[in-house]
Design a protein around this nucleic acid. Structure first.
Lengths: 113, 113
DNA sequence: TGTAAATTACGCACTTTTTTGTAACCCTGG
DNA sequence: CCAGGGTTACAAAAAAGTGCGTAATTTACA
């Protein structure tokens, strides 16, 4: 589902999750089903081109499921897959880690001052 | 320890971990102390400019500690900090997640074939 | 009644911005 | 002149933003 050039799974995950958007999109999608335009509203700074490309990448990685409803105007819905849902706590853990280490750094600089 | 433009910790971690090198360097550094040239040998495809830049980024993020030993030729050692060590299992978990979902995808395509 | 406009989720071409690579230079003692 | 661990300037490549076009139906309005 992707050209696996490397043998290292970490390298491969990071190829999918790297960049500004993938984790953010997962973050918003964990609230539930979202349409393209909702994701745009959730994150106004992403261009529709990027949103489209990133969603496609996440879909190919098996993280996001895309459902098209025929009719006009067209309607497309995005959900996290099972695998995508499993990924959520791992990403949250990274966020928590960051918050903790950031606090630690503040304490250290207080001691020095 | 970094210009925190966003409020979202996930966005901030990913700014540090995004790209090909950060997780790889952490991966090699978890084996223990490494010198610049050792890291180059561990990963021959990284240019020394990138290695330098990425190590500096990880240092500023509080993940890596840099120790300079005076004397010639110069000697510089890199270690994971406490925070860096804490990060290791989180990154490993991502790798495991990838391996699992990849297997799942293979099974699915077998069923379809 | 005719028609223009809006709607949704993009694709495509083009431009700008950011990231990465290449190569050359620095320092100092042996 | 080498080693080790860089830095800096310049070039190439990759990623991201901009804006137009498209589909078929509904609504807006003269």
């Amino acid at each position: 589902m992707k050209d696996l050039v490397s043998r290292c799974p970490i390298e491969e995950v990071m190829r999918v999750l790297s960049g500004r958007w993938p984790t953010l999109l997962i973050y918003y999608l964990k609230e539930g089903t979202k349409r393209f335009s909702e994701l745009q509203r959730d994150n106004p700074t992403v261009s529709h081109r990027m949103l489209s490309l990133e969603l496609r990448k996440l879909e190919q990685a098996g993280i996001v499921e895309r459902t098209v409803f025929d009719g006009y105007p067209l309607r497309v819905e995005y959900d996290l897959t099972r695998a995508g849902l499993d990924l959520v706590p791992l990403i949250d853990a990274l966020g928590d880690w960051w918050t903790e280490t950031d606090t630690a750094r503040v304490i250290v600089s207080n001691e020095k001052a």
